[in-house]
Design a protein around this nucleic acid. Structure first.
Lengths: 163, 163
DNA sequence: ACGACTGTTCAGGAAAATTTGAACAAATCG
DNA sequence: CGATTTGTTCAAATTTTCCTGAACAGTCGT
């Protein structure tokens, strides 16, 4: 899980911590976690905090006990969805916006130019438009993914073919 | 594109280089690339080489010209697919294998144990089995994605619900 | 075969990310 | 209320990653 998480752009320890909690029938304390993974308490606090922010781990407590206990959110699909919703979708949206800006910029530049320069800008504009269309299709597909609805990757390739 | 690529686990410069080439009507030389992006020739060589290995950029040449020219593979969908095929799929496969090994390990351990320890192992085994089932469903879904066939994210959630 | 020009590899150094220990803050109990 | 336990924050240090310049290798023309 550490590997998977790291590959997915999170800290490796987040995956490891989550896994320990996921495999434990009862909630654990930070002390147990830092001991199991040989991590300093600050490292545990940091990664655990981030897991909590992502909803991957919940803080619980026991009556009479003073320290905090943690347990894993065990619905993996829910977690996946949340990450796509909060992170991947934003990323693609930002890309879309950037491409839109670039298009506007090129349009303005085009008016100032003539001859081969204008031709060149026209070419770039077409290409940027294509990237823009792709990311917008991407947005839509991620939306479907988040909604748990079936989705067709072929939409991406067809977006591309029609120029 | 640099941002997107970086987020996706590649070097940022790979995205930038690809974009320059993608926006250029004619193939470019490494000199032009390093000048445009203010990069040393070695950095260009490195990132460009990786792009070529991923099939994102093609090396071409002009008659009479001695140096190499590069042009972008402009079918983005094709590129995406290739990365999923070569990289993501492998990653998930490795995870599946690891979970399978873990299951075997737990099965062996179980036989040596009794009482609460055995219960504990039983719990872990169930959880690992669930992760294993999830990654196997993931493999299947990525396979569909690569094939460009429609795919249903709900399969992931149902994999999870049936224990 | 030599010299000029391109491209690649590699060791060293710069930059970025991670980890840690210590200081701080918060909560609980005597 | 102070002492103790627990958790968080921060700067320093370590590790890792990335970039550069120099040396090396290959190619072409003379």
């Amino acid at each position: 899980m550490g590997r998977l998480m790291e590959f997915w752009g999170f800290r490796r320890h987040m995956g490891r911590l989550w896994t320990i909690l996921y495999l434990s029938p009862e909630p654990l304390t930070t002390a147990e976690l830092s001991e199991t993974l040989r991590l300093s308490s600050s490292a545990v606090s940091l990664s655990l905090g981030e897991l909590v922010r992502w909803g991957a781990v919940r803080k619980t407590w026991r009556p009479g006990e003073r320290r905090d206990f943690y347990q894993a959110e065990s619905n993996v699909w829910k977690l996946l969805r949340r990450v796509y919703e909060r992170r991947e979708l934003n990323l693609v949206r930002e890309a879309s916006d950037a491409f839109r800006d670039a298009q506007r910029f090129l349009d303005e530049a085009r008016d100032q130019l003539t001859g081969p320069d204008r031709k060149r800008v026209d070419y770039m504009r077409k290409r940027v438009a294509r990237l823009s269309a792709l990311t917008r299709t991407g947005e839509r597909l991620i939306g479907l993914l988040i909604a748990g609805r079936p989705f067709n990757p072929a939409d991406l390739s067809s977006t591309e073919e029609e120029q």
